[in-house]
Design a protein around this nucleic acid. Structure first.
Lengths: 147, 147
DNA sequence: TTATTTATTTATAATCGTTATAAATAGTTT
DNA sequence: AAACTATTTATAACGATTATAAATAAATAA
């Protein structure tokens, strides 16, 4: 299944005239197979045994290429490093404020909010961002144990 | 009305034992009276005629104090500068992807999303963030004129 | 095939928002 | 007034990201 995802992603790149280099292949592969939401540096470190000479800039450059092709979503967090997410189905994120863990959850699209916002402000709406913040079960348990 | 907002904000600070310095007063005043969502640097520049010797660090320090007191909300945008918003009523933001303008809009709290997320992931939920992205009327008009 | 053009990678320096640090100043308490 | 504490200022440092230029690889033309 993740194999077909990779193939389809490579196809998308090919049809838009983006060359598939070994580095790009590896970054995509890693993004698909990992269940985490890695930073650029995570990816860089995960692949350094395979590409000892790869530059961080290459990771950033290619993540931008993937983002522009719609294959990857960038999750930005203020001063902290962005996290990157291979786009599969539409989902939202819940983030642990204690350890930073990001977990996916599904929710029917909030079309209503978009419509209301468009109506009230006169904007032409493109998209929205929704994130939920809290404490994950692990951190919650640790916190209660300490008391 | 913004006068009572300022007074109540100063009260909040006083009761939590935070000193009210001229700089803090001015920053709060500016945040309340401006209808924009300024960056730390915007605030710094807006007040430099009044406080020629004020340091940028002072602006950042005090915005952090205000945030921790719950008076101010920080809106983070990846690599770009954070924007700061005096907390009045609960509202969401719609952001123009062309010029960066931020406009407020109201929407009944998305409690349902929080509940679902908590249920599905086992997290203890604290808050959420929702933003809508699009093009503001001004930029939309400019875009159509160019064609 | 070889030559030429173009895209990509690498290495490194630069940028920019933000924070840390330490000295100077102002305010509070004794 | 003296001692203590909070705050401001000035400046250096940090860390994520981007810009730059040279080196390399791939694609196309001759």
């Amino acid at each position: 299944m993740s194999d077909t995802q990779l193939k389809s992603a490579l196809d998308t790149l090919k049809t838009t005239g983006v060359r598939i280099t070994p580095q790009r292949h590896a970054i995509l592969e890693y993004l698909i197979e990992t269940m985490s939401h890695p930073t650029a540096d995570d990816i860089y470190k995960a692949l350094e045994h395979k590409f000892p000479n790869m530059s961080v800039a290459t990771v950033y450059n290619n993540l931008r290429v993937f983002r522009e092709s719609g294959l990857v979503r960038e999750l930005t967090y203020g001063d902290n490093a962005s996290r990157f997410d291979f786009v599969t189905t539409k989902h939202y994120h819940i983030i642990c404020e204690s350890c930073g863990k990001i977990v996916d959850f599904h929710y029917p699209g909030l079309d209503e909010v978009e419509h209301l916002a468009a109506h009230v402000t006169g904007f032409k709406v493109n998209s929205h961002r929704l994130e939920v913040y809290g404490t994950c079960p692990d951190c919650e348990e640790k916190a209660t144990k300490l008391q």
